[in-house]
Design a protein around this nucleic acid. Sequence first.
DNA 1: GGTTCACATGAACAAACGTTCAGGTATAGA
DNA 2: TCTATACCTGAACGTTTGTTCATGTGAACC
Lengths: 193, 193
Amino acid sequence: MNKRSGIESKKKIIKAAMDVFSVKGYAKTSIREIARAAGISVGGVYLYFRNKEELYKSLINEKMRDIGASLRLAAGDTESPAEALSNLLKMHLEHALKHKEFILVHIREHGFAFGVQEKRKFFKEQRALIGHIIQRGIQSGAFRECNPEDMATIILGSLRGILLSIALDQDVHITPEMLNEFIFKGLLKTKSS
Amino acid sequence: MNKRSGIESKKKIIKAAMDVFSVKGYAKTSIREIARAAGISVGGVYLYFRNKEELYKSLINEKMRDIGASLRLAAGDTESPAEALSNLLKMHLEHALKHKEFILVHIREHGFAFGVQEKRKFFKEQRALIGHIIQRGIQSGAFRECNPEDMATIILGSLRGILLSIALDQDVHITPEMLNEFIFKGLLKTKSS
DNA sequence: GGTTCACATGAACAAACGTTCAGGTATAGA
DNA sequence: TCTATACCTGAACGTTTGTTCATGTGAACC
C-alpha cells in the first residue's frame, strides 16, 4: 500500500500463509484470511500466485530446499559416524524449534495433498543420509550390528514423532543431549556400567 | 432403506465417515460424501448426529476409548517392567496396523480441531503409563538411570512418529522386535558384546 | 383398514469458498 | 504535467458447503 514493492508483498503473503496454514490446515484456510493476515487485498494474492495450490506448494518447496541443504551440511562435515549422526539430530531439533509452523504444515498435509513426491523425496534423502552414517558406524565398529536401512527408518520415524511433539505440545522440552542418549544408548542398563 | 434399522445405519455412517475422513481430512470431507459412502441420504446423517463436528468427535472418542482400554490392559498384566513396556509397544504397533485410518485422522487433526482435550488426555495417560513402567524398571535395576518423565516423553514421541510412518508410508515394515531392539538397546555397541 | 411412529429422502437455503476482472493509484521517466 | 507501468483493490460470479424441513415410506399396533 505504502511501499509499493512487489517483492515485499510477496514475502508478506508467504509469511502470512505459513502462519495461517500451520494453525488451520490447508483446507480450512481461506485466501481471504491469508490476504487479511498479510495486509493485502484478496486480488493481490493472485498477482503473485496463480492459485491456492501453487501458493502452498511454493511455500513447502522453498522451506524444504533450505532445511534439506543445511541438514546435508550438518551430516557431512565430520569423520566420526557417531558425531555425524549427533550433529544431524541436533540440527533437526534446532530446525523444529525454529520452524514449528513448517513442521505442522508439512506433517499435517503429508501424503494427502499436493507436493507428495517432493515430500517423499525429502524423506527418502534423509533416510539415505542416516542409513549411510549408520553403515559407516557399523563398519568402524562404533555401532552394533543391524540392518542400516531398517535402523534408518526407525530413527527417522522416531525423529518425526519427536519433532511433531515439539511442534504440537507446547510443554515438551527435549534437548539434543536427551535425544542422543536415547538413540545411542537405549533404555537398558549396559553390562559395563 | 430395506432394513429400516437405525443402529445399522448409524454404524454404516460411522464406518463411512472414518474411511473418508482418513483419506481427505476433516475439512475436505463433505457430509454429502459420507452419506454417499454410507449408502444413506444427506438428511439421514442428521438423524444420528447433530452436525459434522459431533460426528467427528464421537468417532474419535469411541476409538480412543477402545484402544486406550486395551493398551492399559497390555501394560498391566505382567511384573517385569521390560516385558510390560515391550507388550505395550507391541500392542501399539498392532493397533497402528489394524486402524491405520484412525491414526491418520487422529494425528492429522491433533491440536487443531475439536476434541483437543480428549486427545491430550489420551496422550497424558499414555505418558504416565510409560513413565510408571520406566520408574519401576530403574528401581529394579533393569533400566539405566534417567528421568522417567523425560524418557517417557521421548519414547512416546518416537512411537508417535513410527506409528505415523506405518500409517503413511505403505512400504514401511517395522516389527515389534525391531522396535524393541531400538528402544532398549540403542545404536551403540555395548562394551560387553 | 386405519393410525402411529421411527426411519428416510433430497430439494432448498444461507454462508463461505476460490477465482476473476474492471477499475484505481502511486511512482518513474519523458 | 503527462504518460506508461507496476502494483493493488474489492465487488461480483459460480460452486460447494453444512444444515433444515416438508414430505414420504414401511412395519407394528389397534
